[in-house]
Amino acid sequence: MNPADKIKLSVHQVGKSFRLRDGSMIDAVSDTSFSVLENEFCVLLGPSGCGKSTVLRMIAGLEEPDSGILSLDGHEIFAADRERGMVFQNYTSFDWLTVKQNVEYGMKLNGVPGRERSERADEFIDLVKLSKFKDAYPKQLSGGMKQRVAIARTLANEPALLLMDEPFGALDAETRWNMQELMISIVETTQTTVVMVTHDIEEALYLGDHIVFFSSHPGTVFEDSRPAFKAGKRFLLKEDAVSLDGYADAERHIMRLMREQGADYLTKDDN
């Protein structure tokens, strides 16, 4: 990190516990701190049950932390807001609206005048390569296309931060790969700061400028790093990133962490 970089999002000593059905409390997230720089693509990675999604939901304002402070551009986060647009793993296209109406939805809520709204919607539909399907209804689209609608809809709303909760988790391998490359070209074009949750190591290494690795039970930051092998660069083609020196080492390192932390979670769960 160099001193000129501006901190966009700060997560400071955040904790959150949930009440289980049997009445006992479980610490989902405890003493978690990290920060995301302006224009950074930050990936939250970790074994299942490590609380990464809960952290993302707290950033979105969909959950409240029990302790600690989350802030965006120096302002504390209190509730869900257009500043922090979220793309979910499950499809969230509004079935009763066409692709274009879906993309216009957020702007309409926020009072963007009709002409500008339509132009900006076209621009973002073009960005996610759905121009041919502008007037189609989501039911007619494939899973990958629905996620592209969701991404365009969120970005057209000009959020300060784009949040993504395993957005490609439900897609087949080929589509996922295309979507990852599309994400790189989107963040390069729009200069958006992104926080994305995934448990896919390859995806994290390819997309992340910054990888925050979580351990489980309780979920907390285990390792916070900016992959050195990419030297701060982004690659439009996935194979260019994968073939870099140091990629294999980074992958091995994270796989090992994943195994240790995942196994830890299993043994604790089974006792």
């Binding site: 869900a80 647009g85 979910f88 969230t92 009763w96 969701a150 709303n157 959020p159």
Partner: peptide, 28 residues
């Protein structure tokens, strides 16, 4: 689906807008 409501929330919708533009069309 809760995700539809939460999506609208992160797009800046208030409760009235969610009822009108998400819940009602979704259930109609």
């Amino acid at each position: 689906r809760t995700e539809l409501i939460e999506t609208a929330q992160t797009l800046g919708a208030n409760r009235w807008q969610i009822l009108k533009s998400i819940v009602i069309p979704a259930v109609l």
